[in-house]
Design a binder for these strands. Structure first.
Lengths: 185, 185
DNA sequence: CTAAAAATGTAGTTATTGCTACAAAAACTT
DNA sequence: AAGTTTTTGTAGCAATAACTACATTTTTAG
């Protein structure tokens, strides 16, 4: 126990407890008092374990990001597949509750990042690149085209959240069309 | 002058002045005092001309939406074109400053709407449907496929903002790929 | 066991928020 | 001109925000 300070342990515990709340509520309704409530502690304590609110938020968000990586790893760890297949799989995932929450949160991040908030620029950039890399690796296309194809698939799928934030599955017909187009290649 | 009350005129003037600020700053940095400053009046006056803040915000946002319609009308009013062409044109538009601002704002709306905020659900829903209708009309494809294709094109293009909120043009390769795919049809 | 250090509670500060009470000025009506 | 209505300024309220001062308890170390 010489290398894992008690403080670090407590931090981790708090972060884990808050992750769910951030996924459910996004970046609003995240006052220190509210978060303290969710984590079963006090605002005073949150600021004892974390430098300030930004520190706390970043910790929770990166934790969520890492978690996502694991989920994808488990779901996707296969040999490369053709684009149409990958899109189909991603669309299924995005419609699942777990990933829908992730996407909603990412939407929040993008919105903040687009306003040049440096904190969220870094986080959303990292999240985006992680996804692109992951999807690229899954695509059975020439190396030179992997990145473009990955972005294309993600934009199309995630874009449904942009267009239909309250019921992304309304974009079903568009995704079907996209898969059909990809299938012809 | 019997039908246009002074109050209505003043409201319109305020809304027009605030539109630019909303486009530039989104839905944050919009305290009544800040907005009053931008509009060259006082918070007291804003609440005199508008019922409450929501009323003011909705007014400004719908004004912006209507404005957008005009811009598109002017830029797009042509005969139907094949999907690849439409996507190319839309991508060009989205990269222009005017429309980039609009999209950024829409991203904010989507983010709020995805959290079930009824105010923003209504607005973003309306904006989305307006766009879909507009694009549908421009597409030279069978009627039954218009909507799906319009959504597909928009999601792909707007999705770049989602994935690369700080520099959407990073998605250039993906759009090129999409156009290439559409061209083969 | 005692002293230092870590952990936590209580209570506040300062700033900002949307909104309001009240009164004075300006404009309009007759 | 007198009275009514519309418009505007001044000042403030009550709620919430992040964060802090200070005291106290709990844990750890020697």
């Amino acid at each position: 126990m010489a290398f894992v300070s008690k403080k670090a342990t407590k931090r981790a515990a708090i972060v884990a407890k808050l992750a769910g709340h951030f996924l459910a509520s996004g970046l609003e309704d995240t006052s220190l008092r509210r978060l303290a409530d969710v984590a079963g502690t006090s605002d005073r304590m949150l600021l004892y374990y974390f430098e300030n609110k930004d520190d706390l938020v970043v910790s929770v968000l990166t934790h969520i990001g890492d978690d996502l990586a694991l989920v994808l790893e488990a779901k996707f760890a296969d040999e490369p597949k053709p684009p149409a297949e990958v899109m189909r799989a991603l669309w299924e995932l995005v419609k699942s509750v777990a990933l829908a929450d992730q996407l909603r949160l990412w939407l929040d991040l993008s919105s903040r990042a687009s306003r040049q908030d440096p904190l969220y620029m870094v986080i959303s950039e990292a999240m985006g690149e992680a996804w692109i890399k992951r999807l690229s690796a899954l695509l059975d296309v020439p190396d030179a085209e992997k990145r473009a194809m990955a972005i294309l698939i993600m934009a199309t799928v995630d874009g449904q959240m942009f267009l239909f934030p309250t019921a992304p599955e309304r974009g079903e017909i568009a995704i079907a069309k996209a898969i059909e187009l990809l299938d012809r290649v």
